[in-house]
Design a protein around this nucleic acid. Structure first.
Length: 271
DNA sequence: ATGGTGGTTAGACCA
């Protein structure tokens, strides 16, 4: 077990369509662990051989046909943990594993929070209501981890940009799903409830702009740079003593047929 | 200014 662990999170928007992009990222950056969201891939057709070939022989994944789906791929041995059926649904939005053994082992949770649709009103839009209920449940889950397992890491596509400089225009996005006050407040409460350490913002504090997602609908995404920080890496208080080293792989948004999200990677201390 | 693009999958549904 090494003294640091590098963990990457990436909403891949179809792992089968973009397996070559995943391979490029893993070859170039070689994180110890890769967490994926939106694999859109049932378990019986998950591309296990490609990951084996890349050196990621240890894995746990859960997928359903057509949408959602999460996975953890690792160079190090892992023990799969029970997935949470969030909001009482078996919809493949959470997966977890123990990495390592003994007192230095850590627990890793990978979440894909619902996007929430277009209308920021839970009475009018059931998808937004689902998102808010999901985040409330995440708050209770965080509370339980804070007391039971402080050596936890939680990553994923949270589909919320919580801070003013997590979006290209705070004012223009205040009523846009992903940055509404009800969402940003709720996600901030999840952070507090788990006593989580936002290691990305620890490295790049506000008011620096930090993004991990650029819409497909925006032409010339790089020049316009109308991004949002939707993908997060939070470290539990039992692991937050050390420095984390962050990289956000913006270059992946410019690759051929890219995901609209880019990998966010953190090297964390685990002793 | 209320479009725009992309994946999965076969007409919408999701993001």
């Amino acid at each position: 077990m090494p003294e640091t662990l590098s963990i990457a999170t990436w909403n891949i928007n179809s792992v089968r369509l973009r397996i070559d992009l995943v391979g490029r990222f893993l070859t170039e950056q070689a994180p110890d662990i890769l967490c994926l969201q939106e694999t859109k891939c049932p378990n019986d057709v998950f591309p296990t051989a490609a990951f084996d070939k890349l050196g990621y022989r240890h894995k746990t994944y859960i997928g359903i046909k057509g949408y959602n789906g999460v996975a953890i791929l690792s160079k190090l041995p892992l023990t799969p943990l029970a997935a949470q059926a969030m909001c009482g649904r078996e919809d493949a939005r959470h997966i977890a594993a123990r990495i390592g053994e003994g007192s230095r082992a850590i627990t890793l949770h990978n979440f894909y929070v619902p996007a929430g649709g277009d209308i920021a009103d839970p009475d009018e839009n059931p998808k937004f209501a689902h998102k808010l209920a999901f985040v409330e449940e995440l708050k209770r889950f965080s509370e339980s981890l804070r007391t039971e397992d402080a050596r936890s890491v939680i990553v994923g596509d949270f589909n919320i940009a919580p801070l003013e400089h997590d979006v290209w225009s705070h004012k223009q996005l205040l009523d846009v799903v992903s940055h509404t006050p009800v969402e940003t407040r709720s996600l901030t409460e999840v952070l507090a409830a788990g006593d989580w350490h936002d290691v990305v913002r620890a490295q790049w504090p506000e008011p620096r702009k930090v993004y991990s997602w650029w819409s497909y609908r925006s032409p010339d995404w790089d020049k316009a740079d109308k991004g949002r920080r939707l993908d997060h890496v939070w470290v539990g208080r039992g692991l937050a003593g050390g420095e984390a080293e962050i990289s956000i792989h913006r270059e992946a948004r410019g690759w051929e047929r890219p995901s609209d999200h880019v990998p966010v990677m953190a090297r964390i201390q685990i002793d």
